[in-house]
Structures are given as structure tokens and as C-alpha cells.
């Protein structure tokens, strides 16, 4: 038990800071800002990604609209055909 207390005391004892400790800490905190071109590159890449996303959504929407138009065109054409067939059949009678 006494051993343990001694070990603890040694571990918690005040120690002198290693040489250049302060300088090292200060150097670490003084981070160099990123070069301007990197910031611009990041901003451009982000803008391009957003634009690509919007364009893809837009393209999908336009395609969906075209598909809808096609579906309605076929539907109405076929209904027209049915109507003509019914009419022709009625006229024959």
C-alpha cells in the first residue's frame, strides 16, 4: 500500500517542462492558412457538384414529363380508336 502511495506521489509530482515546450505549443497553434487557390478549388468543386445535382434532377424531371406526355398520347389515341371502332360498329348495324 505504501508502495502504491509512493508511486502515485511520484507520478503526480511537479515536473519541469521539457525544453522548447512553449515554442512547440505556439507553433502548433499558429497554423498556416490554406492557400487561396485551394479555397477557390474547393468552392468551385462544391458549386459544380451542386449544379450537377440540380441538372440531374432537372433532366430526370424533363424525362418524366416526356414519358407522361407519351403515355397520355397513346392512351388518348387508343381511346379514340375504341370510339371509332364502336361508332363504325354501330353504323354497320
Amino acid at each position: 500500500m505504501q508502495d502504491f502511495e509512493q508511486q502515485l506521489r511520484d507520478a503526480l509530482a511537479r515536473k519541469e517542462q521539457p525544453p522548447y515546450f512553449e515554442a512547440k505549443v505556439l507553433a502548433a497553434t499558429r497554423r498556416q492558412p490554406k492557400p487561396v487557390f485551394l479555397r477557390w478549388a474547393f468552392a468551385t468543386a462544391s458549386a459544380l457538384l451542386i449544379a450537377a445535382g440540380i441538372w440531374t434532377d432537372h433532366r430526370a424531371g424533363i424525362q418524366a414529363k416526356e414519358q407522361l406526355e407519351l403515355a397520355l398520347r397513346v392512351t388518348v389515341t387508343e381511346l379514340g380508336k375504341v370510339q371509332r371502332t364502336v361508332r363504325a360498329s354501330t353504323e354497320e348495324e
Binding site: E69, T75, V76, T77, V86
Partner: peptide, 27 residues
């Protein structure tokens, strides 16, 4: 609503349905 479908005829590049005679629906 089938009537709404019919109304699309003549618009939107969709052929117009001739609705002059509707008597054939009983067939």
C-alpha cells in the same frame, strides 16, 4: 376522370377525340 382524358385531345400533341356522336357507348 375519363372526360378529363378526352379533353386532352387536341392539346399537348395529343390527337383530338371526335365526340360528335357518343351513341356507340351502349355497344
Amino acid at each position: 376522370d375519363p372526360d378529363q382524358l378526352g379533353q386532352l385531345g387536341g392539346h399537348f400533341g395529343i390527337p383530338k377525340i371526335d365526340t360528335r356522336k357518343e351513341t356507340g357507348h351502349g355497344k
